[in-house]
Design a protein around this nucleic acid. Structure first.
Length: 618
DNA sequence: ATTTTGACGCTAGG
DNA sequence: CCTAGCGTCAA
């Protein structure tokens, strides 16, 4: 039914029905007639309304062996109700519209409040839209109370390697029989009944797929992870996406110009020393200049090659080795740094801005390790380290001004609020210590005098007193540790360290000698993966690795590295998500705290906190 | 002749 | 190891 055509009594009855419902299955309808169930998610099309399938039957057959595609909308559930809620209004006829608007949000509010599961494909988008449309009527804390289920997240937990691209793909995967989702065809006219019918069928399928997935999750021991971590996260991310961060637009424009000037200077210098004009941003052209014309690689042993085409690389590590042989590599290195800064962090950020603000889009199912990812902008990848630029002041005579540019300072907190960051300290290393129970490593973390874990580790490893640990030793220890965590081989470590593979393997050897249990942990993990076909994190997150028993050496060893890496990185992701959920809920239950989560940078949570609440919140 | 797409390389984050 | 994003280049 369309709620616009309901009388007073019917509306009352509808609310009563909602009160008794056992589940809601929902999807948003867009201006162009598509819904969240269509494969092409149109970003330009605005939201027109919400369709809700209200499930009233508790005894719905959902047993194994029962093919859910057999049931149709008409046959299976006469008691269920399909309702259409329009959330978009024209500015005309205030009186009438106000009444509808009020009732619509009454219905939605009751759905959120009554703790009955709301099943939605891409539930985060649904919740975010509610917050945006009813921003004045619904507070973000109320959304936090709701119970949402998203089959896409369930499917991802079962196999995080395949990101289900659409509802159609999900259905095809789970009920092998292919079928098509017809678009709801409505131009400007009223929705036709057949469209409702079709949508009803699809919502029914959505419900069934969710029930099947719930069963699978329970069988696979993923149910708790799903309910306690991933489902609450949907709401957290929805709330996060509704919060906007202010960016200093003038500063952005100014720095873009400064960086542009510096790039021009560097380009000129590069052409000068190269003795020819070429495109600095083209690694292909740079390769011709460096290695075919100047033949610099012949003066250097073992240079890194590109992955696919096996050409001599022009990457940072190689350029670092070449910088004493010719002035060009150094210029290129600076050019790349400045270019990255301009294209990604300055101009790229400006492209993401809407009225002086940015807000990232968070993907909960985008990684194979359980981590989150962000885009538009990728706030997790914004450069930490500032760069220095010598700006020539042509106007004021011959003065030279050194300006430092650090992208993170371009974000400004609201007036009366402060950004507050809380981060884990070396979480992956701690997890490695815990999982391997390596006594020496555990000791390092337990010792209260340990202020810098990598310095202490370097001192412990090489047996030198901690005061004599040099910066280079610390860096080396750090790189080796993370190479082990990330499962890198000797070649990769050599690239990372800028040494030969032989030396790198000696480092690994010496490291493994000192910390034997780490090696044992690695072997045990790979062995378990071989037997079961998957690996498991601390919270039971799984990653199947089909290639773990492959004949092909390259594929198999890759799978082995992925296995080890997953256990560490995935467990870290578990703990970080737990922290998110716990902090979020404690703010929600607090009557006075207003702190908003702004971003998650894997092992760091960034909040915007009212100045007066900083103490209490901390 | 011009635009789009996919493969590849590089680098920022963790 | 796993991400996002910017760039070139050829199809």
């Amino acid at each position: 039914c369309d709620i616009r055509s309901l009388g007073y009594e019917e509306k009352r009855k509808l609310l009563a029905t909602i009160e008794k419902a056992v589940a809601f299955v929902t999807t948003m309808i867009f201006q162009d007639g598509s819904s969240q169930l269509n494969s092409e998610q149109v970003l330009t099309s605005s939201v027109k309304g919400v369709v809700v399938l209200v499930k009233n039957q508790t005894d719905y057959p959902c047993l194994p062996g029962y093919s859910s595609t057999d049931c149709t909308w008409d046959a299976a559930n006469e008691d269920d109700k399909l309702i259409y809620l329009k959330t978009e209004w024209s500015s005309l006829w205030e009186q009438e519209q106000q009444a509808h608007k009020k009732f619509t949000w009454q219905v939605l509010f009751q759905m959120l409040r009554c703790k009955v599961p709301i099943i939605c494909f891409n539930a985060k988008d649904f919740l975010r839209t509610l917050l945006q449309v009813y921003g004045n009527e619904i507070s973000w804390k109320q959304v936090a109370d709701s119970v949402v289920l998203d089959p896409r997240i369930a499917a991802w937990l079962i196999n995080p390697s395949d990101t289900v691209p659409s509802f159609e793909c999900l259905i095809q995967k789970y009920f092998e029989k292919p079928f098509s989702v017809e678009t709801v065809n409505t131009d400007t006219g009223p929705l036709r009944n057949t469209s409702y019918q079709n949508l009803g069928v699809n919502l029914e399928k959505l419900y069934n797929v969710m029930m099947d997935l719930a069963h699978d999750l329970q069988v696979q021991g993923l149910w708790k992870l799903f309910c306690t971590l991933e489902l609450p996260l949907i709401k957290i991310l929805a709330v996060m996406e509704t919060h906007k961060i202010h960016v200093n637009k003038q500063e952005l424009k100014k720095t873009s110009e400064i960086l542009g000037l510096r790039l021009k200077e560097l380009e000129q210098e590069a052409h000068q020393v190269a003795g020819e004009r070429f495109l600095l941003t083209s690694s292909h052209q740079l390769r011709e200049v460096l290695f075919e014309k100047l033949k610099l690689h012949t003066l250097c042993e073992k240079v890194h090659r590109t992955e696919i085409q096996q050409l001599v690389s022009t990457s940072e590590v190689v350029l670092n080795k070449l910088q004493d042989l010719h002035p060009l590599p150094k210029i290129i290195l600076e050019y790349r740094q400045v270019h990255k800064m301009k294209s990604t962090y300055v101009d790229g950020l400006r492209m993401c801005m809407r009225k002086g603000f940015i807000s990232s889009t968070w993907n909960q199912t985008g990684t194979a390790t359980g981590r989150l990812s962000a885009k538009h902008p990728n706030i997790q990848g914004i450069s930490k380290h500032p760069i220095r630029i010598t700006k020539k002041q042509y106007i004021k005579g011959k003065e030279e001004e050194i300006v430092t540019i650090s992208p993170r300072t371009l974000f400004v907190s609201k007036k009366g609020y402060t950004f507050l960051a809380a981060d884990f300290s070396h979480i992956e290393l701690r997890i490695l210590a815990d999982l391997s129970s390596e006594p020496e490593l555990l000791k390092l973390f337990q010792e209260p005098e340990t202020t810098d874990i990598f310095s202490s580790l370097a001192s412990q490893w090489k047996g030198i007193p901690s005061e004599q640990v040099k910066h280079a030793d610390r860096e080396q220890a750090k790189r080796i540790v993370y190479s082990v965590v990330y499962g890198a081989g000797k070649e990769r470590l050599a690239d990372c360290l800028g040494t030969t593979p032989l030396q790198a393997s000696q480092f690994i050897e010496s490291f493994m000698q000192k910390y034997k249990k780490i090696n044992e942990f690695t072997k045990k993990t790979i062995e378990q993966c071989r037997n079961k076909g998957y690996v498991v994190s601390i919270m039971g997150r799984k990653r199947p690795l089909a290639n773990i028993n492959a004949q092909d050496y390259k594929l198999r060893t890759q799978a082995e590295r992925q296995a080890v890496n997953f256990v560490v990185q995935g467990s870290a992701a578990d703990l970080c998500k737990m922290a998110m959920v716990e902090i979020f809920t404690s703010v929600v239950v607090s009557p006075n705290l207003t702190a908003r989560l702004i971003a998650q940078l894997h092992d760091e949570l960034l909040f915007e906190v009212e100045d007066s609440q900083i103490q209490e919140f901390s």
